[in-house]
């Protein structure tokens, strides 16, 4: 198969995170020029393809950083074809135990980050012959996981922002979609397993992981590569008619009503 992103200029925020680096690796293998934007370069990367992505320092909550990153891309590449807003954090609290500082921080990263990065990417995206923005929502933007209140709220905001951006910038040739993952094997999920996720069951992390798999119709949770596969499709010209949609990718989890222990 020919490279599906040959010649495309792409930027992935959170590009050194769990899902972000899988996206960077896939994009690089498919022939794209990849900027992996993140707070820090992170440790050594697992494979050559991820290594091929060029690191770009970006704190998504900083407007100066967003402007500087886009100026850099503009100077080097002259345009941007694909923007993936994958940077995100999670706070495991109810609203009662969430501090205002935590609330502001998660909204700054998960929502304001999408706003700032996209806003300053627009002039470069307009120079593309077919631009695609891919945001990261979550199935938690539709239904609640217990003890993740602020996270759920940020993802609902990303869903609405995705539709709004698609409406406003579709006429300029910019497609905007959101991917809404369910349980994906990332450091964020491991932290959930080690924290409140263990609930009252008192089991080991392994039994918890198996129980989580068993609730999924596909009997597994996702990998970052599963998510990267859909990001790739939405980034590619095959998805030229796809815009304004929320793409749930969760192994069938949210297709069901809660499964009672029958």
């Amino acid at each position: 198969m020919s490279a599906r992103l040959a010649g495309k200029v792409t930027l992935v925020t959170g590009g050194r995170g769990g899902i972000g680096r899988a996206i960077c690796a896939r994009f690089a293998r498919e022939g794209a020029k990849v900027y992996a934007a993140d707070l820090t370069p992170g440790g050594s990367l697992e494979n050559d393809a991820a290594e091929a992505a060029q690191f770009l320092k970006l704190d998504v909550t900083s407007e100066d950083d967003a402007k500087a990153a886009m100026a850099f891309v503009n100077a080097e590449a002259g345009r941007l074809d694909v923007l993936v807003n994958a940077a995100g954090i999670e706070i495991e609290e109810t609203i009662e135990t969430t501090t205002l500082e935590q609330w502001n921080k998660i909204f700054a990263v998960n929502v304001t980050g999408v706003f700032l990065t996209s806003k300053h990417a627009l002039p470069l995206l307009r120079k593309s012959s077919g631009a695609s923005v891919i945001n990261f929502g979550s199935y938690d933007g539709f239904i609640a996981d217990p003890g993740l209140a602020a996270y759920c709220a940020t993802k609902g905001a990303v869903h609405a922002l995705t539709r709004a951006m698609a409406c406003d910038h579709g006429p300029e040739g910019i497609r905007v979609n959101a991917i809404c993952p369910g349980y994906v094997d990332t450091p964020m999920l491991q932290s959930f397993f080690e924290g409140d996720g263990s609930g009252g069951g008192g089991g080991t992390i392994e039994t918890l992981q198996q129980a989580v798999r068993d609730v999924h119709p596909m009997r597994t949770y996702g990998t970052p590569e599963d998510i990267a596969n859909l990001v790739l499709w939405l980034a590619s010209d095959e998805a030229r008619y796809a815009s304004g949609q929320l793409w749930v990718l969760d192994g069938g989890l949210s297709a069901q009503v809660q499964q009672m222990k029958l």
Partner: peptide, 13 residues
């Protein structure tokens, strides 16, 4: 409130 919550409730494992 049943369908407002995720089908996956680790607290009930």
């Amino acid at each position: 409130g049943l369908t407002a919550a995720s089908p996956l409730q680790p607290g009930l494992f």
